[in-house]
Design a binder for these strands. Structure first.
Lengths: 344, 344
DNA sequence: ATAAGAAAGTATATCGTTTTCAAAAGAAAA
DNA sequence: TTTTCTTTTGAAAACGATATACTTTCTTAT
């Protein structure tokens, strides 16, 4: 059996409570006794049992991360590791630990969250997605449990703190960028609009078109996969008039489309421009390198963690939401403006 | 304050111990009382406090994951998320939770591990790297703490269970593949040989050359970065005779080299063949798509977790190490054999 | 010299479970 | 009816810390 606070106390000839105070570096303990106790702790190789501490202090110094992992996708999703790194960085600095959900199905995830929340295993949670009508969100709200969402919530928007990009603006900007580069027929390929992020980006795309007085909304909502990319490319190429640019809102989707275009012998950017979201290594190293919207995933994670920690430290803090600005990273998957030769 | 087992007991007019037994579905409790108690648990919305349970049972049903995260690199490291998914899948199935280190420096990581281990926060650990003279490894061995390593340990190899590829063979195979494709001057660009994995791959490369009676070992050991890739490419191109192929052991490094080659106008695979390790989306989508060694990262993670769980369930199990086979994924970054025109 | 007040340390209750051992209740045997 | 043996439940002691409230000791002021 491991050495406990009592063993230390006995050996140092003080009470357990004194040892506890020494650990906490309580001011009411003499330097002298502190040193005596510390010496004994050293000798015995004592280390406090965190479980016991957590139980009595009713706080775990741990935060839970809820993520959706459709195994298929998450294996190559560039967003998660970067956001995780952002959260980790802050949480580590603030001395929090990180506990993660592993479940795949909605029910499994829900169960894990119940366990973490009700089982008192975590002090707060970060949700890495925002979804329509989500029982997990429901639960957290019901329990009045501290959490921060990455992404804008669909429901109860006035009750949840979130960190997000301005996805409407981001999509508007990148679409506008294409329009100003001379494109008129611009296809939009986005994901499942049950996720708020996709809804927003779709809207941004539409706004940009409207502002430029372009009528033709060319919307595609697709699963991410090699095959669906081929189909989509086929559909796009058959349109009349044929689009000259594609806006995608998902990096993997963008990459798949790019290779589907390549397979069809379509030159990018000459015959077809294409842009995507996220800006990971993937975009940087593709050929041609992709012009993307950098959503600053690291910062999203970092700010979410920061907000959560703030909330835990002052539970009555004013609700605040954070918008992380996006920026367009210009690479070579879009042509320069043909009409005036200027680089945009 | 949350509802506890005592509240349930009182309301159901039984003793707390009975409630505890109902939770555990103990056979010695009548169906009748079970139902009565369960009903009350429902009514009160009771959920057991896992911290308390962990404290008394001395087991956390949680495993810790130790990873090295030089922020720079880990942001785009394709290995980690895939291996994590593999571990998650198994751990979730076995009802374990996942706690992760967040630290960057060796000292921070060491500290976190001490906390997890001595603080009794985890039942076992998985180390995601193997490094020379590692204090973390030292600690785990000293404490006789259950853990599994992904990668072959440098020291104490007879005392640690590990899951790994046969990296010597893998590197030998891919080098051999290039040799059989007609290459003779093959450069090797690998990582820091303080990490066992790089040592092994270096050795595999050398073995292949020796077996083919090729004298010229062209070794480069480089940090992974855009700039060092440019330098390395410059050095390689200046050699006389100039190598016609490059073996890299790191996907990011491989990608960087590929774009450095592109910048220099060197055509791949015609003027220079290149291969890499890991096989993520990056290799699939690069252009040309990369011929790589698939190390089956998912399986590495999965097997590591499986081994650890087995160990926890039967602490006296026979030590076993697992080698996950690698396979070569042929794509387009290597030329077909010129000498006989056959595809290899 | 005595009272009051501060300083340093201790005793004890508590956190919410599980588990061991004993007790009660019911059934079977004498 | 009494005794014995099961079967089911309960009381109390852990688990290893923290925190509250109290005691003792030492200053300082009166």
């Amino acid at each position: 059996m491991a050495v406990t606070i009592k063993d230390v106390a006995k050996r140092a000839q003080v009470a357990p409570s004194t040892v506890s105070r020494v650990i906490a570096d309580h001011p009411k303990i003499t330097q002298e006794t502190k040193e005596k106790v510390r010496k004994v702790m050293q000798e015995l190789g004592y280390h406090p049992n965190l479980l016991a501490r957590k139980l009595v202090t009713q706080s775990s110094q741990t935060i839970g991360i809820i993520r959706k992992t459709s195994s298929k996708r998450s294996l190559s999703d560039p967003f998660f590791p970067v956001a995780l790194q952002g959260m980790s960085d802050l949480l580590h600095e603030k001395k929090y630990s990180v506990l993660m959900t592993c479940g795949e199905s909605d029910e499994e995830i829900y169960h894990e969250v119940v366990n973490m929340v009700q089982g008192k295993s975590v002090d707060g949670m970060i949700m890495l997605y925002s979804q329509d009508n989500d029982p997990v969100l429901q639960l957290l709200l019901e329990q009045d449990f501290p959490f921060v969402m990455i992404g804008r919530p669909t429901d109860h928007i006035d009750k949840v703190m979130y960190v997000d990009n301005d996805n409407v603006k981001a999509a508007r900007d990148i679409t506008d960028y294409l329009i100003r580069a001379g494109h008129e027929y611009i296809a939009y390929v986005g994901g499942d609009p049950r996720f708020e992020v996709h809804k927003d980006r779709e809207q941004g795309y539409k706004q940009a078109l409207k502002l430029a007085d372009i009528q033709s909304e060319l919307l595609f909502r697709k699963e991410i996969s090699r095959d669906s990319a081929r189909e989509t490319v086929a559909e796009i190429l058959e349109m009349n008039p044929r689009p000259t640019a594609i806006v995608t809102t998902d990096e993997l989707m963008g990459m798949s489309l790019l290779s589907a275009l390549y397979e069809r012998g379509i030159r990018v950017p000459d015959e077809m421009a294409i842009t995507t979201f996220m800006d990971s290594m993937l975009s940087e190293l593709s050929s041609p390198p992709m012009t993307t919207v950098d959503i600053h995933a690291f910062q999203l994670g970092f700010e979410a963690a920061k907000t959560l920690v703030d909330l835990l430290e002052k539970p009555d803090m004013m609700k605040r939401n954070i918008l992380v600005p996006t920026s367009i990273v210009v690479r070579e998957s879009c042509r320069k403006n043909k009409t005036n030769g200027a680089m945009i």
